[in-house]
Amino acid sequence: MIERIREEARKAFEEGKIEILIGFGRGTLRATPIFIEKKEDVDKLIWDDTCWINLATYLRRFRGKKTGIVAKGCDARSVVALIAEKQLKREDVYIIGVPCQGMKNEKGEEFLSCRYCEYPTPPVYDVLVGEKREGKKENYPDVSEFESMPPEKRWEFFSEEVKKCIRCYACREACPMCYCEECFADSLDPRWLEPGLSLSSLQFWHLVRAYHQAGRCSDCGACERACPMDVKILYLTRKLNKEVRELFGFVTGLDPEALPPLGTYSTEDKEEFIL
């Protein structure tokens, strides 16, 4: 696999398709993002089951440059979502798609987002390395479990989790879709929420962060994995992704031309909550 990735990367440099390539290299603890600017360096690329950062996060830094990205299914879907939101031009990004075998934590356990991954193979790519992999069709069993709890239990679970947060914003910075010039959490005028670790501030931060992801999140799970405090947050965005699918029939990151549901309006939109 890794030889194929390096070969395609080398070719892309030789053919002038890319000026820079974002991929994974060997880190000191696990795979780490690397930025390759010449073809001689493509041998630094690696691929293993610790490549869990979503590399699409870095793409906006290289706008205006022909940028290559080694992308697993979820990374590629975030690239598509960024294109759909006019943050990138399709022709500026060269996607070396890698069908993903699933990523694991330091104990060798597969991450939740990978366990239920529907799109291990990038739906959009310029070149695909390796055989396509089938995704799972389980329709968010983890979310159903959360939904089955009574409201007060859900609130309790949510509150206990967010209490661990120290507001370092690793979740936000690891997310390709958190690209606002000014995050609502940083705004001083108006001050949408207070600084500090009061329960209400933490609840506010996590709820609004999740809501801003509705129909934009690729279920990559990088936010939760970035968290140094082990706060569970993935179930929130996964719940919203499930809702967006049920209400609008929309799945993020499959088609760069499809308008994201929150960026459009249709008279056919369901309004079941009114009646």
């Binding site: 780490t32 993002p33 507001r167 370092c168 914003y169 690793a170 910075e173 970035a226 140094p228």
Partner: peptide, 16 residues
């Protein structure tokens, strides 16, 4: 520039 490229500019390192 090379060293800092991969930094996401979150506050995990400084808070811990």
């Amino acid at each position: 520039e090379k060293i800092s490229r991969k930094c996401l500019n979150c506050g995990a390192c400084t808070f811990l």
